[in-house]
């Protein structure tokens, strides 16, 4: 998600995250209210127009993010074509494409911090019940921070293996990778503690 935010500053960056997420939810529900391919095709075109309003470079970047969807869309269309429900296949594929493109648009124009602020606000009723929600938002940030590091650890172990073996490492690096992850977790826990850990009386709402 970190790499997904567009460096090109668009008009949509300036809209509050909460408003964008609300609009996203409403529009996604709306996409499920119709089964007519023409309406869904129009909706998809509208989403493309939305991307275009932010510039062609932005549209290209968005298309790159969504490229991994094609196999799934193709599979859905083929399956329904084979079972004689071509129209249903088109409906599902268009709906999926429009909904995910819309979600991707919000991701590309919203900073993680703002996304987390909305989540914190949504979770605020739980906080009133006495459940600590700061840990949830902190956990999301940490997953985003450490996923690339875990991948790197795995690649380093694989290299170390290949340096001393003609065969590919495969599953055999799973255990050392897990041990490494636990060790890293210890270090990060210490870093978190050095800066106060999860203190419960710290304001975590919005301004």
């Amino acid at each position: 998600m970190i790499s997904l935010i567009s460096p090109v500053e668009t008009w949509a960056h300036r809209i509050p995250a909460g408003a964008k997420l609300l609009a996203l939810s409403a529009l996604t529900v709306a996409l499920f209210l119709t089964d007519r391919p023409a309406v869904l095709a129009a909706a998809t075109l509208a989403v493309i127009a939305l991307y275009l309003s932010a510039g062609t470079a932005f549209l290209r970047q968005g298309a790159r993010h969504l490229r991994m969807l094609w196999p799934f869309l193709l599979l859905i269309a083929l399956w329904h074509g084979l079972t004689g429900q071509a129209q249903a296949g088109i409906v599902i594929a268009l709906r999926l494409l429009a909904a995910l493109a819309l979600a991707n648009f919000v991701t590309m124009t919203t900073r993680l911090t703002d996304m987390i602020a909305v989540l914190t606000w949504v979770l605020s009723p739980l906080r009133r019940l006495g459940l600590p929600t700061r840990a949830v938002t902190l956990a999301i940030a940490m997953v985003l921070r450490f996923t690339p590091m875990l991948v790197e650890n795995g690649q380093r172990l694989a290299l170390s293996w290949r340096a001393r073996s003609p065969r590919r490492p495969g599953w055999r690096i799973v255990v050392p990778m897990a041990a490494l992850a636990l060790d890293d977790a210890d270090h990060v826990a210490e870093a978190l503690r050095a800066r106060g850990g999860i203190l419960n009386d710290i304001p975590d709402g919005r301004n």
Binding site: I2, L112, T113, A141, M142, L144, R145, M149, D184, H187, V188, E190, A191, L192, A194, R195
Partner: peptide, 12 residues
């Protein structure tokens, strides 16, 4: 800390 990767907690 010695290793900054053990210290940085956030993605940005």
């Amino acid at each position: 800390f010695q290793n900054p990767d053990h210290q940085i907690i956030f993605p940005t």
